[in-house]
Write a protein that binds this DNA or RNA. Structure first.
Length: 303
DNA sequence: GCATGTCAAGTTGTG
DNA sequence: CACAACTTGACATGC
């Protein structure tokens, strides 16, 4: 069992910078690339610090922000790493991150944001998504990340048709993307039961988010969902990946979807204990929440 | 300095 | 129909 941290730290002095297209568009090309280069260099240093820090904290996985190299695929402000003045140093830092993670067993993942969809009926949405996925696959290759995790997206009135479009788009993905792509059950539309057929048909591992499952049930128990999802990882001989979180406002009162600062240990599935798997802890208190959960699970006798 | 509005992009459900 | 929610607030602007 390895626990993972998502994107950020609250107490450790590690930050990631970003920028907006609007700000970049106010600049001419050279100062724009200089600004971007400064941000990418900062984020590359922060990523190396991140993997060293999670290792020191006993955390076994780190999710890298989807804004790691911001606005890289924007139609106007888009750029290549080779265009940046700090390119050489950035590449060195990415290689160091890859080495450190490999040598210390830190698992790295990406989770592109909600605009990245392979199921949309709009060709433009799919094309933009594939560009972004290709870009994140390059980052993943550079730092040794084995996962690019997305949701199945919208239903558009017909789930089966939407999944058909997703399957079609998947088959055309560059290999650097398709070998890393995973599908996660979400809290409004696609359940584990919905995703299993397409995951099996295309050998796509299924990231099981137990909080989403609780928000959007499908008749499967947590044990059944865990085992069925495990099958999709066994097919490709990779370690299973799951997500867990607690509702900010508790269960039974108000919207359960927003995430709490810490995980309530009662929300951690008992059937996960002792399994070989990676579990991202989605909690606002970040590394503090992962550390607290580790201590609490340890006291319950995790082996 | 500090408060506040803004930021590329999609889709769904709620009030 | 506006807004929140989603993996995550940081940045730009104006006082």
């Amino acid at each position: 069992m390895r626990l993972g941290l998502c994107c950020l730290f609250v107490e450790e002095n590690i930050s990631f910078r970003t920028t907006t297209a609007k700000a970049l568009l106010n600049l001419t090309v050279k100062p724009r690339l200089e600004k971007i280069s400064g941000i990418c260099l900062h984020n590359s240093k922060s990523l190396l610090e991140s993997v060293k820090t999670v290792h020191r904290l006993g955390i076994g996985a780190f999710r890298i922000s989807s804004q790691f190299f911001p606005r890289m695929t924007h139609p106007v402000t888009g750029y290549r790493l080779e265009d940046l003045p700090d390119c050489e140093q950035i590449n060195d830092l990415l290689a160091s991150t890859k080495n450190f993670s490999k040598n210390n067993g830190i698992r790295l993942s990406f989770h592109p944001d909600q605009f990245i969809l392979l199921s949309s009926p709009r060709a433009e949405v799919t094309e933009n998504s594939i560009r972004e996925l290709s870009c994140q696959a390059d980052w993943a290759e550079a730092v040794g990340a084995d996962l690019i995790n997305i949701h199945a997206g919208g239903v558009y009135g017909d789930k089966a048709q939407a999944l058909e479009r997703l399957s079609g788009a998947f088959k055309d993905l560059p290999e650097k993307v398709s070998t890393r792509l995973t599908l996660e059950n979400d809290d409004v539309s696609y359940t584990v039961r919905d995703l299993l057929p397409v995951c099996h048909a295309l050998s796509i591992p299924l990231v099981y988010d137990v909080h989403h499952h609780r928000c959007n049930p499908d008749g499967l128990t947590e044990l059944e969902a865990t085992d069925l999802a495990a099958g999709t990882w066994a097919t490709v001989k990779r370690e299973q990946y799951c997500h867990v979180s607690s509702p900010k406002n508790g269960w039974g009162q108000g919207n359960p979807k927003p995430h709490a600062d810490f995980l309530d240990p009662k929300d951690f599935p008992v059937c996960w204990l002792g399994r070989e798997m990676t579990v991202d802890v989605e909690a606002k208190a970040k590394e503090l929440a992962v550390a607290r959960l580790m201590a609490e699970l340890g006291q319950q006798g995790v082996r």
